[in-house]
Design a binder for these strands. Structure first.
Length: 735
DNA sequence: CTCCTTTGTCTTTTT
DNA sequence: GACAAAGGAG
C-alpha cells in the first residue's frame, strides 16, 4: 500500500522527512498518530532501517499498543524484529532491568508507587524526628519528585542549598530517601527516568549500544515531557540526530508533574537544523466544536499562535445545561445519553469528562439508576487496592526480602500479634546495624531477642521460607494461590462476611487470573517481570473499545482519546478552574488548556453541564458558571443558552461586593443547612497572640474588631503577610 | 496487642 | 462525605 495515500501535504512532509531533528506542532485531532505510524512504516518499507532500530515513545501503554498494532498492520508482519513502542517508564525499566547493575543496583529491583513512597517518607520522618504535621509526607514526596524531574541528586541539592535553612529538612529527607530506596533495591517512578540518564552518562558502552540500536526516535505528546525525559532522548538521539517529536503546547496539562514547556519552545535551539512542521487541519471535530475550543484557548497569553481549521461541517450547536444540584446535572446527562442512544448512537461513543475524580460518584449513582452501562477509568487503580497490594507485598517478600516496605506491610497481615512496638524495635535494630528489616527479623529469631514475640516472628519467617521452597517447583499462579490460602488471608476475609470483604476476595481472584494471563503471555515469566508490568500499568490501559459502555474519566485521562458525544461536567468556577488556580495566572492558563483538551475530545456533540450547588467535603457549595463557558463564542451555542450565560455573568459581577478573598468566601460557602459561621462570645486568642491558620500558616494577631455579626481579626502572617478575616471563618488556633 | 472511637485531611490532575 | 491516622479502653 502507498503510505502517502490520504495524507495532506504537511502530513506527507512529516512522513518523508526522516533524517535530522524534526519538530511537529500538531493541533488537536490533526492526525498526528497517523503521521507517526506512517512514518515508522515508511522507514521500514524504504529499508532505511530495521524495525528494531525505531524507538517510539508514547504516553500510555494503551497508546503504545495501538500504535504498534497499526504499524504492523501497515507494513505487515516483519520477521526482522519489532518496533520498540513503549512509554518512557517502561522503556527505562526495560533498559535498567538489563544494565542497572553498572551503577550499583541489582537488576531485579522493584518499583515503588506513590503509596510506597509515602510510607517510606513517613518512616524516614519518624527516624529523623521530623514532624509530619509541619512537613507533610505528600508535600515532601512532591518536592523530591520535582527535584528528580530536574535531575538534581541529593548531593547536588545539598551543595546548592547549603546554608538555606528552609530547605534543610527537604535535603535531609531526600538524602535518606534515596539511600533507603537503594537499600531496599527499589526505584520510584522518577528514578526510572533519572537512573537511566545516570546509566547513560556513566557507562559509555551501554549508551553506545542503545544509540546504535535506536537510529530513529519518535516521541508523542512531547509537550508533557519533563527535563529528565528530555535529557534522556537528547542523549539517545545524540549520535543519529534522527529525533522526531510531536506535540501541541496548547495541550500541555502536566506542569504539576514537572512537564516543561520549554522542551518544545527551545527545541530548535538545542537541535541545530531542526525542521518544523505545523499540522493545523483538524479531522476530528465539527466546525462548532473547534470554534468553541479555539475561542477558549485564545485567552491564553503564553502560547504559540496557531489556527486550527477544518473542512468538516458546522454540526450541532454546543449544548449548555445548568441545573440546581449535581444530582440533577447527572440526571440530565443520563437523559441526554438515552436520547442519543434512542437515535441510533452507541453508549461507547459517549464520554463524561470531569476535573476531579470525586465527581464520578454522583454520575455513577444516576447511571445505575438509569440502567446505563458505564465504565469508570481512574480513581483507585486495581493494583493499588489494599488486598492486592498485600498479595504483591507477599510476593515481593518471597522473592527477595530486600523491600522493607513490603515486609513491614505484611508482617502483621493477617494478624499475627506482632504490633507496632515490636516492629519499631526490629526497625531500630535494623537501623543500628544498617541491615534490612527482613535480615533484622532473622537475627531477632536467632537471638530470641524479643521474648514471646520472637516465636511469632519465627512463625512468620517459616511461612515465608515454606513459600520460597516452593518457588522453583510450582507456577507463579500456584504460588499466589498458596499465599492467599496458607497465610489464611482469604479465610480471614471470609470470616468477616461483609459485602466489602466479598469484594476483596473477588479482587484477589482477579489478581490470580491476571497472573495466569501474564504467565500465558510470557514464556519467560518471572515474578519480577509480573511485578514490573503491574507497577507501570495505568487504569486507562484497561479501556476496551469492544465493550459498549459510557466512559467516565478525568480530563487528564482523556488526553489522546476521542468520542462522538462528549459531556463536560462540573463547569463551575471553583471546580473547573479549581479554587487554587483562579488567583494564579499560570495555573489558570493550565486549567484553560485542560478545558481545551476536554472540548477537543468531541467529534460531533459537545455538552457542557454545571450545577448551582454541589456537595464538596460534605458541605453544600454554591458555584458560579465557569469563566471558561463565558469565553465560548456565542454563535456556536443556542441563543437562549448563550443569553442565560450572559445574564448570569452580569449578575455575578454585581454579586462580587469586593475583591477581598474573605468577602467572596461569604458568598461561596454554605447555601443552607447548619450554620458554621457563628459568632463566638469570646475568642480563644487576643491581640498579640501567635495563631495558626490552616492555609496562611503562623502569624501574630494585630487587631480584633467586633463587627457585630462576627469578630474581624487582622493577622500578620510570617509567610502570607497581613490578612483581615472573620473569626468564624478563619478558625484560627492559638499556639 | 487489638479494637473501637475520634479527629483530621482532603480536592486537582498520574506514570 | 470518606478515609486514614491517632488516641483511648480493654
Amino acid at each position: 500500500m502507498d503510505l502517502l495515500d490520504g495524507l495532506n501535504d504537511k502530513q506527507k512532509e512529516a512522513v518523508l522527512h526522516t533524517e535530522g531533528p524534526l519538530l511537529i506542532l500538531a493541533g488537536a485531532g490533526s492526525g498526528k498518530t497517523r503521521v507517526l505510524t506512517h512514518r515508522a512504516a515508511y522507514l521500514i518499507q524504504q529499508n532505511k532501517c530495521k524495525p528494531y532500530n525505531i524507538l517510539a515513545i508514547t504516553f500510555t501503554n494503551k497508546a503504545a499498543g495501538e500504535m504498534k498494532e497499526r504499524i504492523e498492520k501497515t507494513v505487515g508482519f516483519n520477521p526482522e524484529g519489532e518496533v520498540w513502542v513503549a512509554t518512557f517508564h517502561s522503556t527505562c525499566s526495560k533498559i535498567l532491568r538489563r544494565f542497572i547493575d553498572r551503577i550499583g543496583y541489582k537488576n531485579d529491583f522493584t518499583i515503588y508507587d506513590s503509596e510506597d513512597q509515602k510510607t517510606l517518607i513517613k518512616n524516614i520522618c519518624k527516624k529523623l524526628d521530623i514532624d509530619t504535621k509541619i512537613h507533610k509526607e505528600k508535600a515532601l514526596a512532591a518536592q523530591i519528585s520535582h527535584l528528580k524531574d530536574k535531575l538534581i541528586t541529593p548531593t547536588q541539592f545539598l551543595l546548592e542549598k547549603e546554608g538555606d535553612f528552609t530547605k534543610k529538612v527537604l535535603g535531609q529527607v531526600y538524602v535518606e530517601y534515596q539511600s533507603q530506596l537503594k537499600k531496599n533495591n527499589a526505584l520510584d517512578f522518577d528514578d526510572l527516568i533519572a537512573k537511566t540518564v545516570e546509566l547513560f552518562k556513566t557507562d559509555e558502552k551501554v549508551l553506545d549500544f542503545y544509540q546504535s540500536q535506536f537510529k530513529y526516535i519518535m516521541v508523542d505528546e512531547y509537550q508533557d515531557t519533563n527535563k529528565a525525559q528530555f535529557e534522556l532522548i537528547r542523549i539517545l538521539a545524540n549520535k543519529s540526530k534522527n529525533l522526531c517529536v510531536v506535540g501541541d503546547d496548547d495541550q500541555s496539562i502536566y506542569k504539576f508533574r514537572g512537564a516543561d514547556i520549554t522542551n518544545i519552545l527551545s527545541f530548535e535551539q538545542v537541535f541545530k537544523n531542526t525542521t518544523v512542521i505545523k499540522l493545523e487541519q483538524n479531522y476530528r471535530s465539527t466546525q462548532n466544536i473547534l470554534n468553541c475550543a479555539n475561542g477558549v484557548i485564545k485567552n491564553n497569553e503564553g502560547r504559540k499562535e496557531k489556527t486550527l481549521w477544518t473542512e468538516n461541517d458546522a454540526g450541532d450547536k454546543i449544548k449548555f445545561i445548568r441545573t440546581q444540584s449535581a444530582y440533577d446535572e447527572a440526571e440530565n446527562v443520563c437523559a441526554e445519553i438515552n436520547d442519543y442512544v434512542r437515535n441510533g448512537g452507541k453508549y461507547k461513543d459517549c464520554a463524561c469528562l470531569y476535573r476531579t475524580n470525586a465527581q464520578s460518584r454522583v454520575l455513577e449513582e444516576r447511571l445505575i439508576r438509569f440502567r446505563i452501562p458505564y465504565k469508570i477509568v481512574g480513581g483507585v487503580n486495581f493494583y493499588q487496592r489494599k488486598e492486592v497490594k498485600d498479595m504483591l507485598a507477599y510476593l515481593k517478600t518471597i522473592e527477595s526480602g530486600l523491600d522493607d516496605i513490603a515486609v513491614r506491610r505484611i508482617i502483621n497481615v493477617p494478624k499475627r500479634a506482632i504490633g507496632a512496638t515490636s516492629i519499631a524495635k526490629v526497625q531500630k535494630y535494623a537501623d543500628d546495624n544498617d541491615i534490612n528489616f527482613y535480615d533484622a527479623l532473622i537475627q531477632v529469631e536467632e537471638q530470641q531477642a524479643l521474648g514471646k514475640t520472637s516465636a511469632k516472628i519465627s512463625a512468620f519467617l517459616d511461612l515465608i521460607r515454606s513459600f520460597r521452597d516452593k518457588l522453583g517447583n510450582i507456577s507463579l499462579t500456584e504460588l499466589l494461590e498458596a499465599v492467599m490460602v496458607e497465610t489464611a488471608y482469604i479465610k480471614e476475609l471470609e470470616a468477616e462476611k461483609t459485602d466489602e470483604a466479598k469484594d476483596r476476595i473477588e479482587n484477589i481472584y482477579e489478581l490470580v487470573s491476571k497472573m495466569a494471563q501474564y504467565e500465558k503471555d510470557h514464556t519467560d515469566a518471572t515474578l519480577t517481570g509480573f511485578l514490573e508490568e503491574v507497577a507501570l500499568i495505568a487504569d486507562i490501559d484497561s479501556l476496551d473499545e469492544s465493550n459498549d459502555y459510557v466512559v467516565l474519566l478525568t480530563i487528564h485521562s482523556a488526553k489522546g482519546l476521542e468520542f462522538d458525544n462528549v459531556f463536560l461536567c462540573g463547569m463551575e468556577d471553583g471546580l473547573f478552574p479549581g479554587t487554587g488556580s483562579i488567583t494564579e495566572p499560570d495555573e489558570l492558563e493550565e486549567e484553560r488548556r485542560l478545558c481545551y483538551v476536554a472540548m477537543t475530545r468531541a467529534k460531533r456533540h459537545l455538552t457542557l453541564t454545571c450545577a448551582r450547588e454541589r456537595m464538596i467535603h460534605g458541605e453544600w457549595v454554591r458555584n458560579n458558571i465557569s469563566r471558561f463557558v463565558g469565553e465560548i463564542p456565542k454563535e456556536v451555542m443556542n441563543e437562549n443558552e448563550a443569553k442565560e450565560i450572559e445574564t448570569e455573568e452580569k449578575k455575578s459581577t454585581i454579586m462580587k461586593p469586593s475583591q477581598s478573598s474573605n468577602a467572596k468566601a461569604v458568598f461561596t460557602t454554605k447555601a443552607f443547612g447548619m450554620e458554621s459561621h457563628e459568632k463566638a462570645d469570646k475568642l480563644s486568642y487576643d491581640v498579640g497572640d501567635t495563631v495558626k491558620h490552616i492555609k496562611f500558616g503562623v502569624g501574630k494577631v494585630l487587631e480584633i474588631v467586633d463587627g457585630g455579626k462576627d469578630f474581624e481579626v487582622t493577622v500578620e502572617f510570617e509567610k502570607a503577610g497581613v490578612k483581615k478575616m472573620f473569626a468564624g471563618f478563619a478558625k484560627l488556633k492559638k499556639i
